[in-house]
Nucleic acid binder design. Structure first.
Length: 433
RNA sequence: GUGGGUGUAGCUCAGUUUGGUCAGAGCGCCAGGUUGUGGCCCUGGAGGCCGUGGGUUCAAGUCCCAUUACCCACCCCA
């Protein structure tokens, strides 16, 4: 008998944490509505080739982190390690882009859901984790770049998360990146001795990544390395200036970080991330960038695109750290005190629920003390007591658990679904304003 | 894949250094003090193959070896 535990890196999201997830999802939905982004829900499973081509063969994700397997039909499938490739595939498969562009506007989409990466778990890093994902197809920008970042900042802002820092960079395009890369390799090679072991290896595989190595020695070398910004072609430079201008126009605070690099192959030009302290080593809350050409790479039309992903669990960690305010979980707790009170109590429970109230009712006649304890523990706002006296008088005693105020309410009214309005959160905790 | 840390009650953790009343605390839970009025207080109670396997010893939660799980960090990323 194997131990009955969840698989490593896969976690149960328990009822008490759900409110935080709901908060995050609500923020995504609400800001998407305001910005005009529509939801799409691609499947969790895709053909392995989609990710190999889309993300890049040489990336860590594809090389060693994908949950790939052969399905019974013999086809190699993969649990999605990120959302963009699948969304791009869906957009092409259903001709969404053509439809949107016929109207002259970019196709604006968002998605939420679990991603899977076989990495060693640690703080802020799971093997199944949730992302919010936003993608805009068909607009070369630069305004759309800034719009997408504004949406991101507004989602985070709505959650009330402070201490966030937005960083932007431009990685150049197929015209200016290769020469830049060559110059970078030249420079890094000249100071090879000062680099850490990993970075010497990166020199051959992915030299850009040396720039964001955290070791002091490498940082020192990176400080005076040629940056991608210095090597931008006129078009990329103009685009980057446009992005910065639009960000300022939208009132988004940001800083330019010439050392910011993205790990996935498909990024071009604009790259950005949002960082937070208080997350340990995994400080990136969100990251994204422009990936013009991905759709062409996947065999579709050549469409410009930009997007980002947000780590929901990382957001939830931050929200938990902020404390919160408790709202009553249930409006009414029904407390029948005698067997005789049971039938009418059940009727009242059903009637109140039908008229939209939340009601806790267990169908047991108990001592009043026990009822009150249960109601208190539940976080109920009101208790409706029905005992011998009440039954005789045709009323229920309504007790406000917070103020202790009590009054009589006719049972007939309750059975008609009428009850005083009680504000319940439903969400039991939220950030303090 | 590589380091480091931690596994003792439902939860959070003492106890391991110097083997011998070491099976403990707090919280939670149950009952009672209070027959129809909760939170606070008091009293009592239930609940543990001390992660697992082996070894040393008269004796192991405690020492040794192995193993496993979780956590943190590297790497990478959200």
């Amino acid at each position: 008998m194997p131990p009955m535990t969840a698989v490593r890196g896969f976690k149960d999201i328990l009822p008490q944490e759900i409110p935080y997830y709901a908060l995050v999802e609500d923020a995504m939905r609400e800001m998407a509505r305001r910005y005009g982004y529509e939801e799409i829900r691609p499947p969790v499973l895709e053909r392995t080739g989609l990710f190999r081509r889309g993300i890049g063969e040489a990336t860590d994700i594809v090389e060693k982190e994908m949950y790939s397997f052969q399905d019974p039909g013999g086809e190699s499938l993969t649990l999605r390690p990120e959302a963009t490739a699948g969304i791009a595939r869906a957009v092409m498969e259903h001709g969404l882009l053509e439809g949107a562009l016929a109207g002259g506007r970019a196709l604006r989409l968002f998605a939420m859901g679990p991603m899977f990466r076989h990495e060693r778990p640690q703080k802020g890093r799971l093997r199944q984790f949730n992302q919010l994902d936003v993608e805009a197809f068909g607009d070369k920008g630069p305004y759309i770049d800034a719009e997408v970042m504004a949406l991101l900042m507004d989602i985070l802002g709505r959650l009330g998360i402070g201490g966030l820092e937005a960083r932007v960079n431009s990685l150049g395009c197929e015209v200016c990146r290769p020469p830049y890369r060559e110059r970078l390799v030249g420079y890094l090679s000249s100071r090879r001795e000062e680099l850490c072991e990993d970075c010497r290896r990166r020199l051959g595989t992915n030299p850009l990544r040396v720039l964001d190595c955290k070791r002091p020695g490498c940082r020192e070398v990176a400080r005076s390395a040629p940056t991608s910004l210095d090597g931008l072609c006129p078009e990329c430079l103009a685009h980057f200036d446009g992005v910065k201008g639009s960000l300022s126009a939208l009132g988004i605070p940001f800083s330019v970080d010439p050392l910011l690099v993205r790990g996935l192959d498909y990024y071009k030009r604009t790259a950005f991330e949002v960082l937070s302290g208080g997350l340990g080593a995994q400080s990136a809350v969100a990251g994204g960038g422009r990936y013009d050409g991905l759709t062409a790479l996947l065999g579709g039309p050549d469409a410009p695109a930009i997007g980002f992903a947000v780590g929901v669990e990382r957001l939830v960690m931050l929200l938990k750290g902020m404390g919160g305010r408790k709202a009553p979980a249930v409006a009414f707790y029904l407390a029948p005190l005698t067997e005789q009170a049971l039938p009418r109590s059940a009727g009242v429970a059903r009637a109140l629920r039908a008229s939209g109230h939340s009601v806790a009712y267990d169908g047991e006649a108990l001592r009043l003390k026990t009822h009150l304890k249960r109601a208190d523990k539940l976080g109920a706002a009101m208790v409706l007591m029905v005992g011998e006296d009440e039954l005789a008088g045709g009323y229920a005693t309504l007790r406000d658990l917070r103020t202790h105020a009590q009054e009589r309410v006719p049972l007939a009214e309750l059975e008609a679904g009428k009850a005083p309005a009680v504000a319940t959160g439903g969400i039991t905790e939220g950030p303090l304003a």
